[in-house]
Design a protein around this nucleic acid. Structure first.
Length: 288
DNA sequence: CACTTGACCTGTCCGC
DNA sequence: TGCGGACAGGTCAAGT
């Protein structure tokens, strides 16, 4: 979510008010709309806003339609102005080369000749054009949980949401977007380390104290990552093509065989909820 | 119903 | 070098 939020704020400054001139796309799973729909509701439409819900982006258009975008693991949304320069010498400092490249699935061209590229190496992500009033009817949004950085998300709200998954591991629960929106594998590991909880601990075994600490940890971790422009594990870049800086400050994620920043114990990697998981084995104990 | 496992894709890295 | 297998930030369908 911090990565998507970073893209959202960047794109908001770059494309709101711009009008689409042309659209190129060729991979139906990445962009399933027909050329007819695109001509009618996207070409000549002006971007009204760029919003985020969970890990999805919503670009509202003045045609009554919206572009809904999910980047999944390797998606990128990179903006290039009309000059089409790139690399370290460019004012934006983009680390992505010339676009489009082999991973480009969708290109939006604006009337001022600026372009927005949707790149996605693994083709898991998607862009979808649909009526704005129907967006929240997508299953993805119908079952999505609370936004962790909204004021309504209190520790009690976290407890209530967790009680919906009592018999699963706390890691699986945190990754479940219907429990809390926006926590992915990196932030689940970092939040659990912050709260000194073992990721395989059953949700129903957590105490109120555990949940309060976890709540604070989630908010701290997500807020810090947004402040640092998100995490670049491999593919992630922001709307200007720049990498995020959070992983330099991560405590456990991808730090197996390195010392725990709190106690010095060697961090280990295990598999929980089918995902690579990093913990301090001394501080994050599985109570029996 | 609650929960877990594979599938969706491409690319990279590691061991033989 | 080459090849096979495991793994990668997420979600969904199908399985138990």
């Amino acid at each position: 979510m911090p990565e998507v939020e970073t893209i959202r704020s960047g794109l908001s400054n770059l494309i709101v008010g711009k009008t689409v001139k042309a659209v190129a796309f060729d991979w139906p799973k990445s962009f399933p709309n027909s050329p007819m729909e695109v001509d009618k509701f996207l070409v000549n439409a002006t971007v009204l806003s760029v919003q985020r819900r969970g890990k999805a982006l919503l670009l509202a258009l003045n045609s009554g339609y919206s572009l809904v975008i999910h980047l999944k693991m390797t998606g990128q949304l990179v903006y290039r102005d009309k000059i089409q320069k790139f690399g370290a010498g460019h004012p934006t400092g983009s680390l992505i080369g010339e676009l489009p490249d082999k991973s480009t699935r969708v290109t939006l061209e604006f009337k001022d000749n600026a372009k927005l590229f949707f790149n996605d190496q693994r083709k898991f992500g998607w862009v979808r054009l649909m009526p704005t009033v129907e967006v929240m009817n997508l299953n993805f949004f119908k079952k999505i949980g609370p936004e962790p950085l909204e004021p309504a998300f209190t520790w009690g709200a976290l407890k209530t949401q967790l009680q919906r998954r009592p018999n699963t591991s706390i890691k699986a629960a945190l990754l479940d977007q219907s429990v809390v929106a926006g926590i992915g594998n990196i932030y689940a590991d970092e939040s659990l380390w912050g709260a000194k909880l073992h990721p395989a601990a059953m949700v129903k075994t957590l105490t109120d104290k555990n949940i309060r600490l976890l709540y604070k940890s989630i908010i701290d971790v997500l807020s810090l990552s947004i402040a640092l422009g998100g995490s670049t594990d491999r593919n992630y870049v922001d709307a200007e093509g720049k990498k995020g800086n959070y992983l330099k400050f991560a405590n456990v994620f991808r730090r197996d065989n390195l010392p725990c920043p709190r106690c010095g114990t060697t961090i280990i990697k295990l598999r929980v909820a089918g995902r690579g998981t990093h913990i301090c084995p001394k501080e994050q104990r599985l109570k029996l």
